[in-house]
Write a protein that binds this DNA or RNA. Sequence first.
DNA 1: GATGAATGAGTGTTCATTCAT
DNA 2: CATGAATGAACACTCATTCAT
Lengths: 190, 190, 190, 190
Amino acid sequence: MRVKDEFKQESLFNATVKLVNKIGFVASSVSKIAKEANVSPATIYIYYTNKEDLLVSTYVNIKKNIGKAVLNDFDPSLPIRDILKKLWLNMFDYITRHPDLFQFTEQFSNSPYCDLVNKEELEKSFEPIIKVLQKGIEQKIIKDVNFDILATFMFYPIFVLSNARLCNNFQKNEKNIETAFQLAWDAIKL
Amino acid sequence: MRVKDEFKQESLFNATVKLVNKIGFVASSVSKIAKEANVSPATIYIYYTNKEDLLVSTYVNIKKNIGKAVLNDFDPSLPIRDILKKLWLNMFDYITRHPDLFQFTEQFSNSPYCDLVNKEELEKSFEPIIKVLQKGIEQKIIKDVNFDILATFMFYPIFVLSNARLCNNFQKNEKNIETAFQLAWDAIKL
Amino acid sequence: MRVKDEFKQESLFNATVKLVNKIGFVASSVSKIAKEANVSPATIYIYYTNKEDLLVSTYVNIKKNIGKAVLNDFDPSLPIRDILKKLWLNMFDYITRHPDLFQFTEQFSNSPYCDLVNKEELEKSFEPIIKVLQKGIEQKIIKDVNFDILATFMFYPIFVLSNARLCNNFQKNEKNIETAFQLAWDAIKL
Amino acid sequence: MRVKDEFKQESLFNATVKLVNKIGFVASSVSKIAKEANVSPATIYIYYTNKEDLLVSTYVNIKKNIGKAVLNDFDPSLPIRDILKKLWLNMFDYITRHPDLFQFTEQFSNSPYCDLVNKEELEKSFEPIIKVLQKGIEQKIIKDVNFDILATFMFYPIFVLSNARLCNNFQKNEKNIETAFQLAWDAIKL
DNA sequence: GATGAATGAGTGTTCATTCAT
DNA sequence: CATGAATGAACACTCATTCAT
């Protein structure tokens, strides 16, 4: 029998990301994605159970990679500020190197498909980061406030600033990134 | 000559907001909106040139109202921190009183229709606020950094914290709102 | 506004009957029926809620007409045998004049759509006939046996004999019909 | 040289009957039948030329078995009524013991695939029965009428009465079966 | 012989929009 | 102004069958 073609799966992954970035989630129909991947629409249903599965799987795939990239060289023994700064740099680095993958996750996060993701599983990738914030609170280095508030100031700015639609004047150079991190730190530090 | 029916237009506005909130942007077809508004699909094309126009107009309409609400009792003579805090409170107040309208704008902001909005025109509503920040910079009260960075820390947290999908642990009570503002202020203040 | 086109509905009815007879229920897709009726597939959904509705409605429509035709000149005061014979003749007459409509009902009766019909409502059309049989039993003219058995010998032979696929040697001439009725009568009479 | 796997063929036969009975002819796709039989869809095309062949072969297979079962203990020297009664009892016995196989033939008989069966070959299995009727006619025991009429009253009632969809009040007990046979006999006897 | 991958053609249905009144 | 009828194009998905191994 024929063997599952590794190339086809990768081709589908790339086509999905590319098309969603180009024309958006709504307009990205199964047949258009198939055409972009040079594959029959029916073939998609060999690799994924349905459209939802294709999109969610693509998202989860990317998100896990981001998790790995962000936690690269993670060293919990460093000062808290240094740990968080490293995370920022890693994240911006990832976005700079894979703008298309990042853009896909941004679009996905705001699509109705987002609700179908197993959030708990994904959050595991980011648990070490949460623990850092908690340690900071215990050590009276970080403000002891509602965790949603902390997260909003520590993490969302990265996504907002990296989103070209929202911030088209922000250059992702070293100086700007460091400045932005300084504001985030000033926000949460005691 | 008959006049365009004010009531019908309002009915369409409400139907659009309600349906998009209930079933999402993708599922909100012209005929469903028409049915929700007790109007023929064809009638929509009397008041709006097409579906896009209907949605964009609805968005712009809300956004301008938000602008007014936020600038209510705007007093440029107050201390800068007080001005900004008043803006925060006004914004949260609006979101609390019109959760459906706010939810619509959130959904719209992440739909492909968003790109069709004349951003410059909308930003006029928020110009006074921008001037406040600029004054703060001149007076060495606020950090002199890229404006996108300032905006990210001063304004987006409101939307993130108010978005139930993103922050389901954040209660919009007075204490939390004040705490959140304090973080925003700590971020941008010199 | 445009008015619902009586011609279109009739055209759809005819196309449905014709196509189902020609290529069978399974192969009769919505788009093929639409093409046969010179109508857009979407138009079908104005007149019927879905394919099932189209087929079931067509069937019920025919079945009610058959009911009327069979009970034409129904006279309960006649001798029981004469009443039943009249029904036979009426039924064969209908089948002879509308072979396509009859064929459709035969095909429908053996399709899965059959289960979707409100049987009770349809049986109302045939209630007078049932009462005749019951009267015959009471008057000791007809055998007092399970009603399914009576019906099987009194009514189904008409359909079997009229079904070209099952009986291709049976000519629907007066003599044959009378002979067949004689057998049915011999079967059920005491 | 490898031989066609007897087990696989049987497995396919059972799967076909089971699935068609469970979900109907229309929904029984080749791949579903393959899955039910724990076999690859491609394997079916080793044993049968196509889907049609699979279904028709399954039908003919069953039909021939029915023929054998019905003619079990066939004794042409008995009185004609006794011969026919024995056939009735054999048939009802078969249906009682193999309701699934019988149900399959009923479904098949009303599917478009039915037209593809070589009827003449099948009728050979039932030739002895036909001869009995002819002998009855010659001996002035059975009415000398069109053969389709005789067959309609002698054989079809069995199928009608055994079909749960058509007759849900008929219990296949000895008394009912004998009563039904009596009506059939009354119909055809002189 | 046996298989799962692969596919073009098809399914029922909904869409944004226009037409005729 | 207002409408429901009408539609071609598109949708997600499944089909019977063939291919490469």
